[in-house]
Write a protein that binds this DNA or RNA. Structure first.
Lengths: 122, 122
DNA sequence: CTTTATAATCGTTAATTTGCGATTAACTTA
DNA sequence: TAAGTTAATCGCAAATTAACGATTATAAAG
């Protein structure tokens, strides 16, 4: 895609939130995280048994979750044991929580003189 | 992309979470939501003044947020007033909160007899 | 040493996302 | 009626994502 001419600068919070959100933006990755977190399984082979997708595809999703920092893997050849990365899990929890709760007014008192009236939504 | 042969079935929770997460997966959409939620602005034109991106691009991101249900827009031609969709905002808040907090063990007592030992991560 | 099991990686294809400028639509105002 | 303002949509290009099968790598087991 085309790069913006004047790059928008984002804060660390914004970037982190976007990275975590992107990791959660595919239902199969949510499924994987739920399985790992609920301890229903741990090894990739178990995920491939529970999720009807090609092994390579699941491996790809695991990589995405790894890169987002939400899980960690320990190699025990020929198996690899995955689990939730607790630190980042809590970090993500906090960031999402903060995002949704930080003091909002949710009003619509826009500081615009010619603001139309009768806005039902707010 | 190729469609999976045996389609994976996801729960409503999983689907919803993925939809909300996808909406939050781009930093500029997080910025827009923060601006709308903090009442720093309301009309698209104000967003275009605050965010150095083409008007069409911002309009596109607004559409994505609309379709995810996180915002709502009221047409007041030639302006459109956007604001947070409070109901879905709270719904998203609850779903993310539930996802990160639902009773997890985070242990690694995998029910696999030949599980390798010494897993540092869990 | 060969086979087996596990999981990452490669190569490919198709779909989606992101960005832009240009155009269009809709309503106000002159 | 004409001009102006605002924002959606179109059309395009580039990048990324998602899925697959095939291959490769690694270590254990025979």
């Amino acid at each position: 895609m085309q790069r913006t001419l004047l790059a928008v600068e984002y804060s660390g919070e914004e970037e982190s939130l976007a990275v975590f959100a992107k990791a959660l933006s595919h239902p199969v990755r949510i499924r994987i995280l739920t399985l790992l977190a609920s301890q229903a399984c741990c090894f990739t082979v178990e995920l491939t048994e529970l999720i009807p997708m090609a092994q390579s595809t699941i491996s790809q999703h695991l990589k995405a979750l790894l890169e987002a920092g939400l899980i960690q893997g320990e190699i025990n050849p020929p198996k690899v044991r995955y689990c939730i990365d607790r630190d980042n899990w809590e970090k993500a929890h906090a960031i999402f929580g903060g995002f949704f709760t930080s003091d909002r007014t949710f009003g619509c008192d826009c500081p615009v003189s010619d603001a139309p009236r009768g806005h039902a939504g707010c």
